[in-house]
Nucleic acid binder design. Structure first.
Length: 466
DNA sequence: CAGCACTTGAT
DNA sequence: TCAAGTGCT
């Protein structure tokens, strides 16, 4: 039955081009049934990411319809749904693009085993990363724990050229029934209201490609220096699109590579940032405990504070530290936060407020529309001191010093704190009543003096060693 | 085993 | 100038 339909199980690869699984499926000549499953793992996404995924699904469904196809939406445990759809369509196989977190690996492995045991085809494909985590190894054959050697190992490697998007997709004689996306209520958990972040989202494959092209056209030149200044529009902002697979890493790699050969000054640095994502997934695959436990296991027992009132002030952007509060409000109102600001708020929570990095990670998971489990686990642990990197414990960011350095004119702080700015106004419209925040409220007194917080953190780190 | 290098800092 | 351990070749 070589003309039996094939089910394409889409997850974090909501695009048509640069898509190995889709390209191979089209080449097989079989009728294709694109499927998205709202399974328990996906239901568990943070509020903002789940809502943003809904936008991506709507866009992807439209793109598929433009090719004469559809996106079938079903809800339930993945294996049960796949078996139903296989039975309904007479399909003989399922294909998907691999993911690399422990939960996905367990789920997909079980799906593969169960389907193959019934004589069905179950095939996973690359495409989420530039390099499979098991294909990058040190001279000793192990995995990398340090970024720079990892970069040196992959920077010269060939990356397959992105496949062009198919022009048409053939479908089954009879389509299986599909849920209606709106019924899934993907934005239901957004306490701030689903529409708040909408103006800040750039959704879908066309938009992501345009974003990449625009970045490579101009901003990449000055990227290396300008990316550190949070008030400037100097970064690509592609993390949002990468998260849902609206663009693939190979498209970005080849774009960046071309820019580098054309002499764009910041292009290599841009490629390095893309490879940081890659490195995070490399670590996530080889050390899956990174998602939840201290990556350095000898940090067990470190006296982090559990969730507490200071952490709640941090979440609300009410620490009294202007740069920190601006950044936390940026995330709440836009669904994203500038990279440098992420480091500073993470340092402030874990060092000055001595609070467990997982408290911060959970809030990021709830608020970020570019939520990436590996990049966040690695980043939080790096800042906290328990993650990969040799000696970060004495690296305590001073938010006031950082503000002076990277937001000297105060433009970033004003944008999210000054009630006259549109972004700040949006913030005050969005916060839940229970937060009791008003535009005319005076800035809170700092939770802790910066030098005292620094000393307290360093003392705790010193005590850990003895 | 030696030697080298280490994303983003602070005072 | 500090601080200093460790991962990698």
């Amino acid at each position: 039955m070589s003309d039996a339909p094939l089910v394409l199980w889409f997850r974090r690869d909501l695009r048509l081009g640069d898509h190995p699984m889709l390209a191979r499926a089209v080449a097989s000549g079989r009728p294709l049934v694109p499927l998205f499953i709202l399974d328990p793992e996906t239901e568990a996404l943070g509020a903002a990411a789940k809502w943003r995924l809904g936008l991506s699904l709507a866009d992807f469904a439209r793109r598929l319809e433009g090719l004469g196809s559809r996106l079938i939406l079903r809800r339930g445990p993945a294996l049960a749904v796949l078996e139903q759809v296989l039975a309904e369509t007479g399909a003989m196989g399922v294909h998907w693009s691999r993911l690399y977190d422990a939960g996905s690996i367990a789920r997909d492995g079980a799906v593969k085993a169960a389907l193959r045991a019934r004589g069905l085809e179950a095939v996973s494909h690359e495409g989420f990363l530039l390099h499979e985590p098991w294909q990058v190894a040190t001279g000793q054959g192990g995995f990398y724990r340090v970024y720079t050697p990892y970069w040196n190992a992959v920077k010269g490697r060939d990356v397959a050229a992105p496949e062009p998007a198919p022009k048409r997709l053939s479908g089954p004689a009879v389509w299986p029934q599909s849920d209606v996306l709106a019924d899934w209520q993907m934005g239901a958990a957004m306490r701030r209201g689903a529409g708040v972040c909408l103006p800040f989202q750039v959704v879908g494959e066309d938009a992501a490609q345009a974003r990449l092209a625009a970045f490579l056209e101009t901003r990449v030149q000055d990227y290396k220096a300008a990316r550190d200044f949070p008030a400037r529009d100097a970064t690509s902002r592609l993390s949002e699109n990468l998260t849902y697979g609206e663009i693939g890493p190979r498209s970005i790699w080849h774009g960046g590579w071309r820019a580098m050969q054309d002499g764009a000054a910041g292009a290599e640095h841009f490629l390095k940032e893309l490879v940081w994502r890659e490195f995070a997934w490399h670590l996530m695959y080889h050390t899956p405990h990174m998602a939840e436990a201290n990556w350095r296991e000898d940090w067990q027992g470190f006296p982090w504070r559990e969730d507490n009132a200071d952490a709640e002030a941090w979440r609300r952007g009410m620490t009294g530290e202007p740069f920190v509060d601006a950044a936390m409000r940026e995330m709440y109102v836009t669904g994203t936060m500038h990279n440098r600001a992420r480091m500073i708020v993470a340092s402030y929570l874990t060092k000055h407020l001595m609070t467990d990095w997982r408290v911060g990670l959970r809030w990021f998971a709830d608020c970020l529309t570019d939520w990436d489990a590996a990049a966040n686990a690695m980043g939080w642990q790096w800042v906290a001191g328990c993650g990969p990197d040799a000696a970060p414990y004495f690296r305590v960011f001073n938010p006031a010093g950082q503000a002076e350095k990277f937001d000297a004119d105060g433009a970033y702080r004003k944008r999210f704190l000054d009630p006259r700015s549109p972004e700040a106004r949006r913030y005050f419209e969005a916060v839940p009543l229970s937060w009791q925040l008003a535009p005319d409220q005076p800035a809170p007194r700092p939770l802790i003096a910066l030098d005292r917080g620094r000393e307290r953190a360093l003392a705790a780190y010193a005590a850990r060693k003895s």
